[in-house]
Computed example of a mutant assay.
Amino acid sequence: EGGIERTPATKAVRAGEFTAGITIPPGSRFFVDNLYFQYTGGGTLECETAGEAGNAGISGQNLLPLDTIPGLEKAVVRDILIPGREEEDDNSLRARYFTRVRREAVSANKQHYKQWAEEVDGVGRAKIFPLWNGAGTVKVVITNANLEPASDILIKKVKDYIDPDEGQGEGQAPIGAAVTVESAVWKEIEISASVLPELNSSIDDVKAEIEKGVLNLFKKMAFEENTVRLSQINNIVYNSASVSDYADIKMNGAAENLVLSDVEIPKLKEVTILEQTR
């Protein structure tokens, strides 16, 4: 009714490392760890399986070529350039539906630019900065589908979709709009605490449980909140089943809230746990 369709699963794009100086025909197929990839040119590989399967931790593994490629002696899969994403869930679909029917994203307003950026395959969230460099300028800052900094390939995809020829109206953006697309940047955060584990729990159990809670918090916060609150970390430690008592929780060495810049997303660098004595 509203012209909104569920976004299908997308395929992961990864970098590949191959024998120097040889030509690999686009469409050449490779196999690794029960996954098939096709070479798409420029040293990139696209997973044939849509969804998060292509995001697997296979970086550094050897690729088995399924086609004869003269001179190929080295074929290694490398980092994820554009993460694969599962089919859109109901909550996301519902949110986009209400954005459309309430006409929140219209006439190239901020919400419209956000919508354009986030409908590009591989983009997770976008933040819009109007008039950032004078009249007619718009900056779009994006994360990838895993809510991490975006690759150059993904940045180019968004730029080409919204404003491929600056100001000419050849993309989604109107004539006269000069659009700049950039990646979000990490803000590394170290968590430390003094903890008394439960009798049947170890320090390793405590650390793993706190890490899991903090990672979930940071993923939810990406481009949604600009302040990591000490109370949020306290709640994670307090609600950890492996923790009996705790004290002296700090972020980056200080017992205070941590404010992110407009383009930063939080990244857990390390959790340091000092064990209390009974």
Results as ranks from 00 to 15, higher is better:
G84F: 06
R14K: 05
G2L: 12
A254P: 00
A193K: 02
L81M: 11
P25D: 07
R125S: 07
A208Q: 08
A150N: 03
E198Q: 08
A126D: 13
G134A: 14
E224L: 13
A177F: 03
E17H: 02
F18S: 00
V259T: 10
E182H: 14
K74D: 00
R278Y: 13
E182R: 14
R94V: 15
V259M: 03
S151K: 07
G54Y: 13
V141I: 08
G136K: 05
D204A: 15
I233Y: 01
G16K: 02
G71C: 10
L93I: 10
I162K: 01
D165M: 11
T227L: 12
M221P: 09
A241N: 03
T180V: 12
A126S: 11
Y113F: 15
E119T: 10
A9H: 05
I210H: 08
A135R: 06
I82F: 07
G60P: 05
E88Y: 04
T40E: 13
E190V: 12
S192P: 06
G41Y: 07
R94P: 03
L72I: 08
G42P: 05
R278L: 14
D163E: 01
R96W: 08
Y161P: 00
Q115D: 05
N226R: 15
V32D: 01
N144E: 11
R100D: 08
R14G: 04
L72P: 01
I4T: 09
D79C: 10
L64E: 15
K212Q: 10
S231G: 06
E52Y: 02
G171Q: 03
N252R: 05
N226D: 13
N144P: 07
E170V: 07
L215H: 03
V106Y: 08
G43V: 09
F37L: 01
G3C: 03
D205G: 14
T10Y: 06
P174W: 02
A12F: 00
S202W: 06
